[in-house]
């Protein structure tokens, strides 16, 4: 990296950040996240006391049914929620920083639409696929969407500009959405698919977590490593270049991390993408415009939001579950609107 201590010592560009607030959010948020995960494990069709939860985690006794429920059903689900929430939120933060577009979220890269398209094919032509293979194909679809968007964008003469990226993303999304709704309408699989797509993390198990966790973990660490460069990119390409950022490399890395994070998230949890739009906004509102703080804070807040939303979705009207993506949007939208209406200056 061309960025050395010299440039850090006299920052020619001032990033308005609130490190104290950010530290509080990181510590408090992590505590709240752990607490809400414990709550998520204890609340459900059969309520289990927090004490039993503690025992099931640290003094596991395979003969107790409650321990079995916790270990096999609720723990994986709580962990999946936290991980997926963090993944979506951070991928959204990367996208918004890189494209300097407040509208950007991972779904704009053609990710969700690609996954939905492949999902429609799976439901229409291979209805007996296992959960695992559906998950795999979803990820392939997401990658396909990103690959086309990226390919089209980088083929152009001017190269990878934010505007072109978002436009290509919108067009590829429209194409895939059209193809998948064509398949859905023709083969009448729309509603079954919708149940899967909006079903969130129901039915997740340890095996799936062990597959996605390393990817998401890697993506999160990668995002934190490039966070400084993303802050600079968010100020504009020229400034970033003049401060010695290798913008080409950072953009590619950013795209790869977004794909890994959001792709893994989509293939596990379906359409919960709204997190990727609101959480980074919220984090920026709280901690300022430095992505070094925005990215980790987004991870914590995103995880927290999904864990809490999943508790509500499960307990609202048992045994049926409320679609979690819709729930997050229904809670998130008024909140987002409140922030947007209140905010001065920048908006």
């Amino acid at each position: 990296m061309a960025l050395n201590n010299g440039t850090e010592a006299k920052p020619s560009v001032k990033l308005h950040a609130r490190p104290v607030v950010a530290t509080i959010i990181l510590i408090g948020g992590t505590a709240a996240l752990l607490l809400s995960m414990a709550l998520a494990i204890s609340v459900g069709a059969a309520n289990i006391s927090l004490e039993t939860v503690w025992e099931a985690v640290f003094k596991f006794n395979p003969e107790l049914t409650s321990h079995q429920i916790i270990r096999e059903l609720r723990m994986p689900r709580a962990i999946a929620c936290a991980v997926v929430g963090a993944a979506f939120a951070v991928s959204g933060a990367i996208m918004q920083g890189m494209t300097r577009n407040p509208l950007a979220d991972p779904s704009l890269l053609g990710l969700n639409a690609g996954a939905g398209f492949v999902l429609a094919i799976c439901f229409a032509f291979f209805p007996s696929l296992s959960y695992m293979s559906i998950m795999f194909f979803c990820f392939v679809g997401a990658a396909l969407g990103v690959a086309i968007v990226y390919g089209v964008t980088s083929m152009a003469k001017g190269g990878l500009t934010p505007v072109r990226l978002t436009l290509a993303g919108a067009a590829v999304s429209a194409l895939f959405v059209a193809l998948s709704s064509g398949i859905q309408i023709h083969y009448k699989v729309g509603q079954n698919m919708a149940f899967w797509y909006h079903g969130g993390v129901a039915g997740i198990n340890w095996q799936q977590i062990s597959i996605i966790a390393p990817w998401i973990g890697g993506g999160l660490i990668g995002a934190i490593i490039i966070s400084r460069a993303i802050s600079l990119l968010s100020l504009g390409e020229d400034i970033a270049v003049s401060l010695g950022t290798r913008t080409g490399l950072i953009k590619i890395l950013g795209l790869v991390f977004t794909l890994v994070l959001a792709g893994a998230g989509v293939s596990v949890a379906g359409a919960v993408g709204f997190i990727g739009l609101i959480i980074p906004h919220f984090a920026r509102y709280l901690v300022g415009v430095n992505y070094r703080w925005i990215i980790p804070c987004s991870a914590v807040l995103g995880g927290l939001l999904v864990v809490l939303a999943d508790i509500v979705a499960r307990t609202m009207n048992p045994p049926s579950e409320f679609p979690i993506g819709a729930l997050i949007a229904l809670i998130g939208v008024p909140f987002f609107l409140y922030l947007a209406v209140k905010q001065r200056g920048e908006l």
């Binding site: 407040p102 509208l103 509603q191 919708a194 149940f195 909006h198 709204f274 739009l277 609101i278 409320f322 679609p323 993506g325 819709a326 729930l327 997050i328 949007a329 229904l330 998130g332 939208v333 008024p334 987002f336 609107l337 947007a340 209406v341 908006l347």
Partner: peptide, 23 residues
């Protein structure tokens, strides 16, 4: 900018309500 953001948010909220109804 403000209008775009609010437009996206309102759209997302309405779509969510629609998902709940259509399911």
């Amino acid at each position: 900018t403000r209008m775009i953001l609010i437009g996206v948010a309102v759209q997302a909220g309405i779509n969510a309500a629609m998902v709940v109804l259509t399911l």
